[in-house]
Nucleic acid binder design. Structure first.
Lengths: 227, 227
DNA sequence: AATTTTGCCTAACGCTGTTACAAAAAGTAA
DNA sequence: TTACTTTTTGTAACAGCGTTAGGCAAAATT
């Protein structure tokens, strides 16, 4: 009987409209106006209807969290696929991470800014594993095949992520604009990104030793390599 | 007349008890139970009394923000004063920053985690200038006197801060515990800190060239330099 | 047509930040 | 001491929040 099908479809539509409307409100009015009651108002249903789709407010946030990590993981994978050399992959992923954060401020704020993500939260987001994977493999690939790893890849993964996260979160709320000299730093944040990535890659190349594989852009006195 | 003096003193006492009580509640029960009403209840005054001392809730948070940056700036200055070589100063400050974050989780969360600090907020916290100062001078001091700076010190300052902030904020909420291998990473976060700082300092030393001043601990194959 | 099930809404509970206004206390002056 | 003024404090409300119990009406089933 197609009646149940239609009912399921309609239920799914309501669920989707909850998420869509909520997201639209977050994007246009910020996280401060993310409220169950406002969502109910916007989708023209009463408040309890929302609770028949989501257990509570956090469940909706978790849904957005999932989506955010999915987008980020996909974006990193795509950036990585476009490069051959591990060092270039790292740089491309750094830039992709950066772009994701600033093209999706609301996602990034949710994922890393507010909410104080708990341990349980992490286990509920499988895309985080993919995120880990795609980065770590590039890092590991920097040491020549056969050679034993001169560093802990998980350590390097954490360093990579930490640097990026710090960079983004300080820039995303303009906190970094405490420039005392007050000028000529037009595109500074991106330069900081390049600077940090150079340090990171140089650190790995330094650990492998001068005989390790490297590409032409690994020794820029002027850090002006492309994005 | 001493009557006004006593009144001022009493008013100041109430103000202090508001801050003390609020902070105690935050430390013991977390930010989620930071509420004007709970504070009023704890200090045994009615709610409007609090509004006669602070314009609103954010004003109290701003006060804690100020205090937090003051503590952090002082702590960095102290760590710096204990070291002679700029590279050691950088490492010591990194460790001090790290310790501050984990010994004062509540402060750190307020200062960088929640609250989405706006541009105006920054200008209201003078200790942030000291924070900037104490770090930048160490960085600049790494290049030998007379030699022209081969990098933008403000850029390096941002890199330094970003790395630390990322490191801390990822570790402070246990988000980094996505270790796939699942073992032997007992004290990994601190190792990540060392790793990141090595990259940072190496980046600067690389920029000034091999003739620049350096100390014995600048090339640790085994990153085991003391705190 | 009678009955069960489903979907939905009204209304409430307890919490939040914030404020208008009245009561009480304290200081001042006669 | 009494009368007046000023300052300090509490009561109670407004508007908003997340969440949930209970009932009404429409839909599906028998």
């Amino acid at each position: 009987m197609g009646i149940n099908d239609r009912k399921l479809r309609q239920k799914e539509e309501v669920r989707a409209s909850i998420l869509d409307t909520a997201w639209e409100m977050v994007v246009t009015e910020g996280w401060q106006s993310f409220s169950i009651r406002k969502i109910a108002d916007a989708i023209e249903y009463s408040v309890p209807v929302i609770y028949s789709h989501f257990e509570n407010k956090d469940a909706i946030l978790l849904e957005f969290n999932r989506k955010g990590f999915q987008i980020l993981a996909d974006s990193l994978a795509k950036a990585k696929a476009g490069k051959a050399l591990p060092a270039d992959q790292i740089r491309a992923m750094a830039r992709a991470y950066w772009d994701f954060a600033f093209q999706n401020k609301e996602y990034y704020q949710l994922m890393f800014g507010l909410g104080i993500p708990t341990c349980e939260t992490v286990s509920k987001i499988p895309a985080m594993a993919a995120f880990n994977e795609v980065i770590t493999t590039s890092i590991v690939a920097m040491v020549p095949a056969g050679q034993q790893l001169p560093f802990d890849p998980f350590l390097k993964y954490q360093s990579f992520w930490s640097m990026l996260h710090g960079l983004v979160s300080i820039n995303i709320s303009k906190l970094g604009k405490t420039d005392p000299t007050g000028s000529e730093h037009a595109n500074l944040p991106l330069k900081v990104l390049e600077d940090v990535m150079c340090s990171f890659i140089r650190g790995i190349e330094g650990a492998i030793g001068p005989s390790g594989k490297t590409d032409q852009s690994s020794e820029p006195s002027q850090p002006t390599h492309p994005a």
